[in-house]
Design a protein around this nucleic acid. Sequence first.
RNA 1: GCCAAUGUAGCUCAGUUGGUAGAGCAGCGCAUUCGUAAUGCGCAGGUCUGGGGUUCGAGUCCCCACAUUGGCUCCA
Length: 645
Amino acid sequence: MIIKFPDGNERNYDVGVSALDIAASISDKLKKATVAAEVNGKVVDAFSPITTDSTLKLLTFADEGGRKAYRHTASHIMAQAVKRLYKDVKLAIGPSIENGFYYDFDTDITFSQADFAAIEKEINKIVSENLPISRFEMPRKEAIEYMENMGEQYKVELINDLPINSIISFYKQGDFVDLCAGPHLPSTGIVKNIKLLSVAGAYWRGNEKNKMLQRIYGTAFAKKQELDEYIEKLEEAKKRDHNKLGRELELFTTVDMIGQGLPILLPKGARIIQLLERFVEDEEQRRGYQLTKTPFMAKRDLYKVSGHWDHYRDSMFIMGDSEDETAEVFALRPMTCPFQFMTYLNRSRSYRDLPMRLNETSTLFRNESSGEMHGLIRVRQFTISEGHIACRPDQVEEEFKGCLELTKYLLGTIGLLDDITYRFSKWDENDKEKYIGAPESWDATQNMMRDILNDLNVPFVEADGEAAFYGPKLDLQIKNVHGKEDTLVTIQIDFQLAERFGMTYTDSDGEKKYPYVLHRTSIGCYERTLALLIEKYAGAFPTWLAPVQVKVMAMTDRTQDQAIEIADKLFKMGIRTETDLRNEKIGFKIREAQMQKIPYMLIVGDKEVEAGVVAVRSRKNGDEGTKPLSEFASEILLEIAEKRK
RNA sequence: GCCAAUGUAGCUCAGUUGGUAGAGCAGCGCAUUCGUAAUGCGCAGGUCUGGGGUUCGAGUCCCCACAUUGGCUCCA
């Protein structure tokens, strides 16, 4: 048979040889590195026989498919180790994931990190046993019986969900058998460098109504060095963690007595947020937005109209007895929409009023579940650069484009744009609990949004069941230092709430019509954006955002007065300047300012006073020599004005 | 909300099988007046997250609550 390689070469092989045999025929080294094979575009076991003319790509750990097979095998080895050590454990699922693998177990005993040493020891034993891994298949019915006999009820459930005529595949290594589609490596001896990372609870099939299983996360690499580097990278990432750095740099703190998800923004953190807010509000004004200031709470009547009372109540802070229909019950707002709609409804609107762009620096309250809170990324009270645009159908695309451009400009300026991915979030037509509106309207609006995204060349991925309850969204996603993805910015098309609120406009033909409403944020919620900025810059903010921009240090107490004078001059120019007049060595003062990530340090000693200059040190380049204060001031003012990164 | 870990001075952490609390940094005082990432000496600082319990005795063991962290579910 003819085997075609990616480089275009073709060679003839006997029918039934495996990818591994082929690799071996090329070189020993290649055979060793081959962990899986892509045969006619499908990733399969490297040890399975190839029986017809095929194209073949040998996969090593460097290929995604190879990495997956490697780590998936690692997950089987871990499961085998766990089963050997703890007899009554039931297996759920154990896939490879982006940077490693996990396996979900059901057992009465609780795993903790303390058990890792024992499990890893058993893993290493299985690796050194070098057990051959083989694949076998059986019809669905037999497969169910087989797994029932083994007491693996989760596997039975999985097989039950497969089509009636399926052929079910299993993989076996020594005393361990697992339901699995594969592919896997040919033996356990190849998968070295396995490390367990963490334990976690995880619901069976990701449904909170199901039993919580115990998940063990781990990773595996082909080379010991790669594993070490990965662990090192994780440690480095932790140092950038906004939750640690933000507290160390005194940007925010939390207080047990205040409660979960309610951080205190300390003066430095509050300053950064103020700078961002001013930046955003000014830019939005320039782009035709009108600022509103609306109440933080409302009677439940408002939320009944908006749909929040029925679809969002669990996440709202409610004041009063919500069971009592006659009582006046208030709730803190979880969203700004209905409040800004009232602005629209203040008087009748003409097609000439549209598009009407409203923005607000809006504080919202959401009663998130207690386990959800995370530093500044997930909180219960937050302030978002909120906005709603009411527009005619023919304006939707242009307005959507305007929203996206604004966001790109803002995120580009603060330096987060390059880290963004785009998600087109659609509804789940089966989830009638969550979503309002008719399927046809959803389809129409989603198609409209997809067309707009395509027109604008937005490189998006589609996601089902991620829409808002009233309409589809474009979400701008970003990952934190732990690799966890969150939504930074969202732009939504709403075809429903205008009608619910009776928001109409009189069109040129004299007819009353409902506008489309775009719900959008431009820079996201300030707390979350700040968190990601902290991680992006490891606390060393661009000068225009730095809470303290210049530290003026007196060399000795002979130059204190001059230091104060210099700081005062800069301060009056609007540069955030502090002095350090302490009786400490200059090295000590520099170290402290450096650790606080202050962009510029001015050192004032006898020599500088004599020459009428300042000695400039930047956190980035160190000693930059001396220059007149006026020169330094105009340079830093320019850097700030240009919002240089 | 669920699973797990953690909680000792402002911060980072020690604290033996249960016997009455310790270091470094920060703070304050004194000395030092110093040239680009840590000057020396001294002083003060704690209801060991909170509340119950076991015990002659609890930072240590048990229970409950709260908070922090990593996941799950949910979400900006």
